[in-house]
Nucleic acid binder design. Structure first.
Lengths: 343, 343
DNA sequence: ATTATTATGGAAAACGTTTTTTTAAATAGT
DNA sequence: ACTATTTAAAAAAACGTTTTCCATAATAAT
């Protein structure tokens, strides 16, 4: 049935001019075109509801106008907000956002890269922290090389071991700041609930936690570091372990809010009072952190804004504005009631 | 600096054959090509890290392999799950998902349609309910017409007033089922917290609520219908209004879980006991619904699965499998403690 | 031994644009 | 009145594929 597409030629015929002229009108090029002709073309375009075929344009210009965004899990509010920010900025400039959900699978991430390469994406954003896996790293190095030969801009959000522009989110800094606060409140027996093992972000956050302890002359006790996976349920499970050592712990620092919320829920459920018996803090400032019981002390990382900043940065770079600097975002400590001063 | 792209011609040269032959190998076409030649081509492809330019392919085949997904808010777990499901299915088949976040703005939705039209998307999924606005409707009708002339498949998730394939999610049915349950538990003075005004989904959900009342011979009292916007905060605000009429209300049906959770939170905060003084139910079964205080009685709509089903349906349709039927999903009543039997 | 068929491959056209080159007409400069 | 310049528009080439059409050599059928 394939209906014939309306092309620039149809417009030209109707406007009684050449396709060349139509193109010039569309792109209001430098080449002069008389007012009458331009008007006839505009009219024809409107009449035919013509919109230029971006694929054909792309072929000519070697631009796809595609920005690929690779996330671990689009259902994670962190990524959802970032994608929203990126999309908000970018779609206003006729770019489109391609999304890839990797579920933290190395294979899927590579698959996404392959698709994006084949589609000649103008830029790729590796929105989640790097996965830690040797073979993967090698393949990624080669892939990134190819992409850069192909003139694709690759951007990483947390530090990656790849030779790309990395936007440093200050994951470690955030953990350091909040742990400092916990210590300032008199706690010295502090548990940590970790993030997923293979994630670089986890590594960084834990690093920030440890840095704060060391800075304050508190020995890092590996027995007080509990497994987690960034999820509510992970937090709950960790809490059950924490309860077993409750006498040697006065505060819990969680690698993110979901974890902290899960831990608090389970502690409450097991009749351990937060913050009277134990303090809990997180990172991210999820919307629900405000309404948990008790409200969660956490750190806000303005991810949506990060997204728009990324979009802006990207567009500047794609338009050869090489000097454009990425606008950093500021993290913010949010004090609520889940952290209590130790007497 | 624009690095020269590696093309089929480079491969041809290295493999000592014509571009035609390379193309045949890539697409393992019907036209026979000898084993040796094929192997030489494969080797050359690997050596050059060649991947065919999808844009050029698209120009020739009039296929972009783009599936556009238009959502109201990607941060809403409902949409995030659906997108994840769609992406999961589709990216395994070399299609790519383009995402558009409209923030429920009519202009942005039309803009998204324009971009998708220009990019010759193979299919567009209108993932959120229609916005209700007369002018918008007209423009959308015309847009959809153009898209269909252009052979783009347009799919709507909740009923839309447009002439497209609509996947009926049973929003009204879900509300009817849960309201029936509330009534079965002895409640007759039931408040409703509505969704956003201009949203067709809101309209449908409210319709289901009303239908249940009428079926059970309970008069619909407009004074017991409160404004909401599908958000936690909206639920909180509505709860403050509900409290003013607390004596004439024994149960609250919310248009979604976020609203229900917000309402419960505020009720608790104002020392109104749920479910002893008032029952609350929602729709969606958000992850946090399980961990709220008290755990929320709600309806599960398996959205992720809906997403994969949509993906499957779409791919079948795009491959001219016109008889493929959409696989319906089943809603499920989740009984928890926020609904209490009235004595 | 001649013709028909099959296997393999290349040349050229096509997809819908943009860009470069060419052409034609009108104006300006002498 | 002739040449130079400017303005406007068209023709042709290009982007990287796929597809249609031809060409050749080898095999099979008579």
């Amino acid at each position: 049935m394939a209906n014939k597409e309306i092309t620039i030629k149809d417009v030209a015929k109707l406007a009684e001019c050449s396709p060349t002229t139509v193109s010039r009108v569309i792109n209001n090029s430098d080449h002069p075109v008389s007012k009458e002709t331009a008007e006839k073309v505009e009219a024809a375009i409107k009449k035919l509801n013509f919109s230029p075929n971006r694929i054909a344009q792309g072929l000519k210009s070697d631009r796809s106008n595609i920005i690929g965004v690779i996330v671990h899990d689009i259902c994670d509010s962190y990524f959802a907000q970032m994608v929203k920010g990126i999309e908000e900025f970018i779609s206003g400039h006729e770019y489109i956002v391609n999304i890839y959900n990797t579920s933290r699978s190395v294979e899927k991430e590579l698959h996404a890269f392959n698709l994006l390469k084949a589609n000649r994406a103008d830029a790729i954003i590796l929105a989640g922290g790097a996965l830690m896996d040797k073979k993967y790293e090698q393949k990624m190095h080669s892939m990134i090389n190819q992409l850069q030969n192909q003139n694709t801009l690759v951007l990483g959000i947390t530090p990656h071991p790849f030779d790309i522009k990395n936007i440093i989110l200050g994951n470690d800094r955030a953990l350091e700041v909040i742990t400092d606060k916990v210590i300032e409140y008199g706690h010295r027996k502090i548990a940590y609930i970790d993030g997923p093992e293979k994630l670089y972000t986890s590594y960084l956050r834990k690093k920030g936690f440890k840095k704060s302890l060391e800075k304050n002359d508190i020995a890092v006790d590996d027995n007080l570091i509990f497994k987690g996976d960034f999820s509510f349920n992970g937090g709950r499970k960790a809490a059950l372990e924490i309860i077993k050592k409750i006498n040697s712990i006065t505060a819990v620092v969680a690698a993110n809010d979901s974890t902290a919320l899960g831990a608090m829920w389970e502690l409450n459920h097991q009749a351990i009072k937060v913050p009277d018996q134990i303090s809990v803090v997180g990172i991210d400032n999820l919307p629900e952190a405000k309404y948990s019981y008790p409200p969660l002390t956490t750190i806000e990382i303005p991810i949506y804004q990060l997204g728009t900043n990324i979009g802006e940065y990207l567009l500047n770079r794609l338009n050869e504005n090489c000097n454009y600097q990425f606008k950093d975002i500021k993290i913010k400590l949010i004090m609520r009631n889940s952290l209590k001063r130790l007497k």
